[in-house]
């Protein structure tokens, strides 16, 4: 079955599942972001930031978050299980059904195709690490937003660099892993054409993610610096601008991925 047909057949179902997964992931990120930002949010606009010299407020924010999160942590395991159920399971089911090149089913397919355990383990590790790096990128982006009221550009530069580097590492890892998969499979005569096509698309997509992450980083970073320099203190209008910038940067990332998937689908046909 060709990738384009799969996309056409399951586009709406896929969108629904992704929306559910997204909301599930939102649930744990929201209290974290709110409690981290609470101590700064209480201060008048531009007066203080988490990155003020000496770190008094940064440590205070961590202290109060620890206090507040202690309550949330009691719900933690239940929350995580629920999030896992609504994200991993449906995605896995869908992917298994479609042979959609998502990590777990892909590895299963590969396992039957190549029977090369060491390289499979290496590929799996690379995928896992790439996800960890992506989470790190998300955390750095999170920190950036809480300190975006800063009147000094220095700290923003640092967090933006961390975020972009982490995202780039994540994508590069995936790219390396995917290329390795394609090479392994090409060497293996038993691999089917459709799977090879899918994997070619996968590498393309990984490449697009590097571009997407760079675009995301650049937009967020640029927006943050612009806010810091041009506006300084934060007003409701500034908060709105900041929110728009962030939503825009997300849209850029999603668009980059969509384009990549389109290219992949065409190349697979």
């Amino acid at each position: 079955m060709r990738l384009r047909d799969e996309l056409a057949r399951c586009g709406s179902g896929m969108s629904l599942l992704l929306a559910v997964a997204w909301l599930a992931a939102l649930a744990p990120s929201l209290p974290l972001g709110l409690s981290l930002g609470a101590s700064v949010a209480a201060w008048p606009g531009g007066e203080l930031t988490l990155g003020e010299p000496g770190g008094v407020l940064l440590l205070e924010a961590l202290r109060s978050s620890a206090r507040e999160l202690a309550v949330a942590a009691r719900l933690g395991p239940a929350w995580l299980c629920a999030a896992a159920l609504v994200t991993v399971v449906p995605q896995g089911a869908l992917a298994a059904q479609l042979a959609w090149p998502i990590r777990l089913p892909l590895l299963l397919a590969l396992a039957t195709a190549t029977r090369r355990l060491p390289s499979l383990l290496a590929i799996a590790a690379a995928h896992l690490l790439s996800r960890v790096a992506l989470v790190a990128a998300a955390v750095f982006f999170a920190t950036m937003t809480t300190i975006v009221t800063s009147s000094r550009a220095g700290e923003l530069v640092v967090f933006a660099i961390f975020a972009v580097v982490a995202a780039a590492i994540a994508c590069a890892l995936r790219l390396v892993a995917d290329v390795a998969v394609v090479r392994a499979l090409r060497a293996d005569v038993g691999a089917g054409d459709a799977l090879l096509d899918a994997l070619g698309a996968l590498s393309l997509r990984a490449f697009s993610e590097v571009l997407g992450a760079a675009a995301l980083g650049a937009v967020t970073f640029g927006g943050a610096v612009w806010l810091a320099h041009e506006i300084g203190a934060r007003t409701p209008a500034e908060a709105a601008v900041s929110a728009t910038l962030r939503a825009g940067s997300l849209a850029a990332l999603v668009a980059a991925r969509a384009v990549a998937l389109g290219v992949a689908a065409r190349s697979a046909t």
Binding site: A24, A25, S29, L34, G37, A138, T145, R246, L253
Partner: peptide, 19 residues
């Protein structure tokens, strides 16, 4: 508006985690 701002932020984190 601040809440909206934080929501978009949490959304960013969620998107990065689930795409």
């Amino acid at each position: 508006l601040r809440l909206l701002e934080r929501l978009t932020h949490a959304g960013a984190a969620a998107t990065l985690l689930t795409l």
